[in-house]
Design a protein around this nucleic acid. Structure first.
Length: 245
DNA sequence: CCGAATGAAAG
DNA sequence: CTTTCATTCGG
């Protein structure tokens, strides 16, 4: 496993064909992942792996990856990562190591310990980066709570919200910079991160009314969410009773 | 889950 | 413009 990627394989073309024919038995219209015995895989050099991968790619028409089985079976899989995590599996990459695929946990997980580093899986939810005020509040939360026995979190928010607005631009800028750094660190760790808020529909109904909402109509003080725009959504207001999770 | 603050991001 | 959600944690 050295540097030669583009050099010729130690296997001649005829041998490569033979290796491929054996694996090709697994190929059918619905197979998206190839299974290769660990022992056989270790016989392959870089060029041979590339040869096989390209052949398989002709069938699946997508980028593929070699992934070592992390469930205790001496086996390697070739395919797009998404097919390995579809059923809830996880692909882990211990630092400086190969990729391991962890099965959801069907019957027996014998060698789960093989993969110690808690590298986040593909689809774990990444929390959004905190904004300047959130960092400010987080930093002072404990102190405020200690200083004001019995204070509630909501009151802490009110207190620190006031304090925040009274802070100098320098102080606020300091936290703004911090939030920016936190965000950059997150993007570095998760280059594909994207804030994806759920649609209002798939979450709860009524949200609190903010500034200048005014009392347009006091028939139902509980019903907010009146769009100021037009009459398109006036009558509807679907679901209102049960939202929850 | 909600709320209470602020602000980033998305629609 | 609107809403979600990042922080906190008792209700």
């Amino acid at each position: 496993m050295a540097v030669n990627m583009n050099t010729a394989s130690q296997w001649n073309p005829l041998q490569l064909q033979a290796i491929w024919r054996e694996l090709e038995d697994q190929v059918h219209p619905f197979s998206r992942v190839l299974s290769i015995r660990g022992e056989a895989f270790r016989q392959l050099d870089a060029a041979a792996k590339l040869f096989i991968a390209r052949r398989f790619m002709e069938h699946v028409q997508e980028s593929v990856l070699y992934v070592i089985d992390g469930n205790g079976i001496d086996r390697v899989y070739l395919g797009a990562p998404k097919h390995l995590v579809d059923g809830g599996g996880t692909i882990l990459r211990p630092p400086g190591s190969n990729l391991y695929w962890i099965r959801p946990a069907v019957h027996k997980i014998t060698t789960a310990t093989l993969i110690a580093p808690p590298v986040p899986a593909k689809h774990v939810k990444i929390p959004r980066p905190p904004n300047a005020y959130i960092l400010y509040r987080k930093e002072r939360h404990h102190h405020v709570k200690i200083s004001n026995p019995g204070i509630t979190n909501n009151e802490i928010s009110q207190l620190l919200g006031k304090a925040w607005n009274l802070e100098s631009r320098e102080v606020r800028q300091k936290y703004k910079d911090m939030s920016e750094k936190v965000k950059q660190a997150l993007l570095e760790k998760h280059p594909d991160y994207q804030y994806r808020p759920r649609r209002p529909s798939e979450r709860r109904r009524r949200r609190r009314n903010t500034q200048s909402q005014d009392q347009q109509d006091n028939t139902d003080a509980n019903n907010a969410t009146t769009s100021p725009g037009d009459a398109s959504a006036s009558a509807a207001t679907p679901s209102d009773s049960t939202d929850a999770v």
